[in-house]
């Protein structure tokens, strides 16, 4: 998932980051449990001040979109009710497993379809 910040857009950079991450979580592009880059690294990549990115992360955390686990970093929070959150966590775990096994995305989706049909 890419984040683009336009310095000439008229929208504050922290707001651009916040909205793009929020929309990516809503659309499923950023899955529950996905780890966000550190504030310093994202600030470096976007050419922004650390405080600007930190503000975006604080607002996302306040909105319940992400959660910060201390020194482990910031992660996308599972959205929706308990059932949806559990399903999102299971999907994340499956994605990590197939990546580790070197299975490509098309085959991984085919396995899910087959399992759902069974």
């Amino acid at each position: 998932m890419l984040v683009r910040v336009d310095a000439e857009a008229g929208v504050p950079p922290y707001e651009q980051i916040r909205v793009q991450v929020r929309d990516a979580v809503r659309s499923g592009e950023l899955a529950a449990g996905a780890k966000l880059p550190t504030v310093r690294r994202l600030a470096d990549d976007l050419g922004l001040a650390v405080n600007t990115v930190a503000r975006a992360y604080r607002e996302l955390e306040g909105d319940g979109v992400i959660e910060t686990r201390g020194r482990n970093g910031s992660f996308v929070r599972a959205q929706g009710d308990a059932t949806e959150r559990a399903a999102q966590e299971a999907a994340r775990s499956y994605a990590d497993t197939v990546r580790r096994l070197g299975v490509d995305a098309t085959a991984a989706r085919a396995y899910i379809d087959a399992a759902l049909r069974a």
């Binding site: 998932m1 890419l2 984040v3 683009r4 910040v5 336009d6 310095a7 000439e8 991450v21 990516a24 950023l30 996905a34 780890k35 966000l36 880059p37 994202l42 990549d45 976007l46 050419g47 922004l48």
Partner: peptide
Amino acid sequence: RSTRTARIT
């Protein structure tokens, strides 16, 4: 260039 791009994941 005014636009900067970063990868989140």
